[in-house]
Design a protein around this nucleic acid. Structure first.
Lengths: 251, 251
DNA sequence: CGGGCGGTTGATGTCGGTCAAGTCGCGTGG
DNA sequence: CCACGCGACTTGACCGACATCAACCGCCCG
C-alpha cells in the first residue's frame, strides 16, 4: 500500500534542470537560480501507486514535480475517497505542510514521478532573500485555489456528463501545457476509478457516463487511461474554457 | 442586484485597527505596521447583498475584511450558482485578481461589511520589503486551499445530512474564531438558499435536510439565519474537527 | 393591503447508487 | 503451459436520494 519512495542517488543540478528551459516557465535570475540550487536537497523517485506525502505527516520537505503525474486526495474514516486535484511537472506539493502544522491531504503517484526535494526549514530564507520567488509561491497557491474553485463549481452544480467532460478537458489542458501527454499527445493516465473519486460519483455510474462520451467519439479508453480525441468538444459540453497559457512561475 | 459599494469617508488608521489587538492575530513589527498603513487606501462599506468583487473584473484593489460576513461564489452561464467559501474578518479577498489577470469568482456581502482597501500595484513592494508579510500572504493562500480541499471532500463524498452538518460546524467555527457570531454567540447569518448553493443541493432538499437537524435540536432557524445549538453534535455527525486555533497572520 | 422573500411540505419523477455478473488482459505460480 | 487471481472496464436490474413541481404560510416593508 504505502510503499516508501526512494531517493535518487544521482542528484541533478538546478542549472541543468530540464524544466527550466521550457518557454512556459519564467526565467530565473542568476541569484535566484543559485539560491534554489542550495535550497534543493535531492530528488525523489516515486513509482506508480506510491504515496509521496501522507495526510497528518509533518514532513521536513517540500517538493516540486519534475516529471510524471500525481494526485492529491483526502479520505473519510470509512474509506470514502475524494481526489482534490492532479499534479504535473512544475507544480509544487507540500506547501501546506510547510506553512501549516501538518499535511491535510495525501499525494500519490499516478505514473512514475520525479520530484525535487527542498528543505522546509530554509523556506523562510527564501522569503527573506528572494521577493520574486516569494511572489511566485503566492502565485502558485492562488492558482491552485482558482482550480479548486472550478472543481467545486463542477462537483456542486454540473451534471455527471458535464462534470466528466470538464475533468477530461481540464486534464487534457494540464497535461498539454506540461508536455506530458502520452502517445500522440492525447493520452491521460487516469483510470475510471480515479475519475469516479474526482467527480464524486460511483464507479458504475462513472463508467456509464464516460461510455457516452466514448460513444460520441470524444474519448477512447486504452491502456489504463484515456485518449482525449476531441478536447474542444469536451470543453463545449462542460461549458468551460481553460485559462489562456502564459508564462508561469516555477520553483 | 449589483449595487455599487461606497467608500468610507472616515478612514481609520491601521494603528488603531480594532482587529490588530485581537489575540488570535500575530502582532506586527513597527516597520510592518508602517508599511501596511501606507499600503492601505481606504475603507469600503458594503451593504447586505452588495457585490464586492465581480468575476472577470480586473480590480486595482485588494481587500482585507474588517467586519461582517461575505461569501465567494461562481455561476454557470445558465445561472446555476456554487458558493465556494465564506469570508470573515481577517480574511483577504481579491488576491487571485492581484496575482492572476482577472477575478475568477465574485464576492458578495452576507451582512453589512467593512473592508480595508489596498493598492494592488504596491503588492510587489510588499514582497520586496517585508518577508514576514509575504510569508503571511502565502500562509493565507495555503489555508484557503486547505479549506477548499475539505469542502470538496464534503460535496464529493458526504451525504446531504453530513454535508449540512459539516457546513454548519464549519461556519460556527469560523464565526466563533472571528468573534462575529450574533446573539448569544451562536447566530450564523446564512439563509437556506445559501446553504443549498454551498452544499450543491436544491433548496427543497436542503430545507428537508436542515429540518432534520432542527428536529434533533442541533440548530434553530430564526431571523434569516440559523442558531447553532450543538456544534459538537454537528461535528460528530459530519465526522469533522476544526483546526485547533492558533495565532494566525492578518494583513 | 399586496407583493416579495424566506421557509415548509407533499406528490411525483429521475439521476445516480447499489448489487450482481461477466469480460478482457496480464502477471504469477503450479 | 495453463489455471488462477486480480485489476480495469462493462452491463443490466433494481432502488433510493435528491430534484422538480406546486402549493402554502408568515413576516416585513412599501
Amino acid at each position: 500500500m504505502a510503499i516508501e519512495p526512494r531517493q535518487n542517488p544521482t542528484r541533478v543540478s538546478c542549472f541543468e534542470c530540464p524544466l527550466r528551459h521550457m518557454r512556459r516557465f519564467r526565467p530565473f535570475s542568476d541569484s535566484e537560480l543559485e539560491f534554489v540550487s542550495t535550497f534543493k536537497r535531492g530528488e525523489l523517485l516515486a513509482d506508480t501507486g506510491t504515496t509521496v506525502l501522507a495526510e497528518g505527516a509533518r514532513s521536513a520537505h517540500l517538493y516540486t514535480v519534475l516529471a510524471g503525474w500525481g494526485f492529491r486526495y483526502k479520505i473519510l474514516e470509512d474509506g470514502r475517497r475524494q481526489i482534490l486535484n492532479y499534479v504535473v511537472p512544475g507544480d509544487m506539493v507540500g506547501l501546506q505542510g510547510a506553512v501549516m502544522a501538518e499535511m491535510q491531504h495525501s499525494v500519490e503517484a499516478l505514473t512514475p514521478m520525479t520530484l525535487c526535494v527542498f528543505e522546509r526549514s530554509r523556506l523562510f530564507s527564501l522569503f527573506e532573500l528572494h521577493p520574486g520567488l516569494s511572489f511566485d509561491l503566492t502565485w502558485l497557491a492562488a492558482r491552485e485555489e482558482s482550480i479548486l474553485d472550478e472543481h467545486l463549481l463542477s462537483i456542486g452544480r454540473r451534471s455527471a456528463l458535464e462534470r466528466a467532460s470538464y475533468l477530461l478537458a481540464f486534464l487534457f489542458d494540464r497535461g498539454m501545457s506540461a508536455g506530458i501527454l502520452g502517445d500522440n499527445h492525447r493520452h491521460v493516465p487516469v483510470t475510471q476509478m480515479h475519475f469516479a473519486d474526482t467527480l464524486g460519483l460511483s464507479i458504475v455510474h462513472t463508467n456509464k457516463t464516460l461510455k457516452k462520451l466514448a460513444d460520441r467519439g470524444l474519448i477512447r479508453w486504452r491502456d489504463r487511461g484515456c485518449d482525449v480525441l476531441d478536447p474542444a468538444g469536451l470543453q463545449d459540453l462542460a461549458k468551460w474554457k481553460p485559462e489562456e497559457a502564459r508564462v508561469r512561475p516555477f520553483i
